[in-house]
């Protein structure tokens, strides 16, 4: 009972040549270490563009990029829009709530309509896992996953990797803690795939209701007590806690959560002095971490935002660069 590979594009090239041949970016699980590194290297060379007085290059002039956000996310959408604009693409937002979707039009019909207007890249955010994969089977455009259900959020994973690599100089050999609601987090999954492929050790930490048995099978260590693993961490990525999880009874109260998992000054003092603190945001100050930690010297939260732009420019650039034969390959 072998399973055919998901049609995410063309076969990856050998790791030796950091070239990119995929038409879509659907997730990090599909990518090789070489492909992830190619994106990070490209992102590094884009980082400089944001420092220029004129923050724009003509690379994607004449290309049309659509933001298809079937779930609200102002930050991610803004970051993608700005990235596309810095590459001189035309960007159009499509917000599902204000669209025909609320009138019952199917998601695929909506995408096809958009494509009929002329579109090269679709950036999709959706509350249902696999929606980008479904979309990629029905459109000719490149599809970039901007977060699907609890499945993947590849550009968030990549910007976390980029931030770690720039701050620590490497990823291989580091011990990275992901703290919080792993079970329902697409950020966690993209981090797990990206970090383990690049040779980091990943420790997942949270209560068993949010980090259930079995996650070890993804190549991670599972811990339920943050204080026991914190001293070993080089990087801690503090995931956002969604309050509806508490309402569903997955943990008893926000204050109990904070007591066990909140990143405080006291916890920071028991960590490695150069612990790098990441948080995908938007952060709940006082729930996942205290304000002094969020704004302190270990925090790279704002670097993540800056790097996010470079990563998204890199991804837009790379998926747009597929060869002329690529679209016929499917």
């Amino acid at each position: 009972m072998s399973t055919p590979p998901a049609p995410t594009g063309e076969a990856p090239s050998p790791a030796a040549t950091p070239s990119w041949t995929r038409r879509h970016l659907l997730g990090l699980e599909d990518l090789s270490a070489g492909e992830i590194t190619a994106i990070l290297d490209t992102a590094d060379s884009f980082a400089e563009v944001s420092d220029r007085p004129r923050k724009k290059v003509p690379a994607l002039q004449g290309k049309v990029v659509f933001n298809l956000f079937f779930e609200n996310s102002t930050r991610t959408r803004t970051s993608f829009s700005l990235a596309a604009k810095r590459l001189s693409a035309d960007v159009q937002d499509f917000a599902a709530s204000t669209s025909s979707l609320s009138k019952g039009e199917s998601f695929i019909d909506t995408a096809r309509n958009i494509e009929a207007m002329g579109c090269d890249v679709m950036i999709i955010r959706h509350s249902i896992s696999g929606a980008p994969q479904l979309l990629s089977k029905h459109v000719r455009s490149s599809v970039i996953n901007a977060g699907d259900g609890a499945h993947e959020h590849p550009t968030q994973g990549l910007l976390d990797l980029m931030t770690i690599r720039r701050k620590k100089g490497r990823i291989e050999g580091l011990t990275v803690g992901l703290v919080g609601d792993i079970a329902h987090s697409r950020v966690a999954r993209s981090n797990i795939w990206g970090l383990t492929k690049l040779g980091a050790k990943v420790i997942l930490c949270g209560p068993p209701t949010l980090v259930p048995r079995g996650f070890e099978a993804l190549g991670c260590e599972v811990a339920h007590h943050l204080d026991e693993v914190l001293p070993r961490l080089d990087v801690v990525n503090v995931l956002r806690i969604q309050f509806e999880r508490q309402q569903k009874g997955l943990f008893p109260s926000v204050s109990e959560y904070f007591y066990f998992y909140g990143m405080t000054r006291e916890r920071l003092e028991r960590s490695k002095p150069d612990l790098l603190l990441l948080a995908p945001g938007p952060i709940n100050r006082g729930v996942e971490l205290t304000p002094e930690v969020a704004d302190g010297p270990n925090s790279a939260i704002l670097d993540q935002v800056t790097n996010g732009l470079a990563v998204r420019m890199a991804v837009l650039y790379l998926v747009s660069g597929r060869g002329p034969g690529a679209s016929k390959a499917e």
Binding site: G130, G149, A150, G214, A217, L218
Partner: peptide, 11 residues
């Protein structure tokens, strides 16, 4: 519900 749903982030 099991390893695959955990891996794929599908309820």
């Amino acid at each position: 519900g099991g390893f695959q749903s955990m891996r794929l982030g599908i309820p």
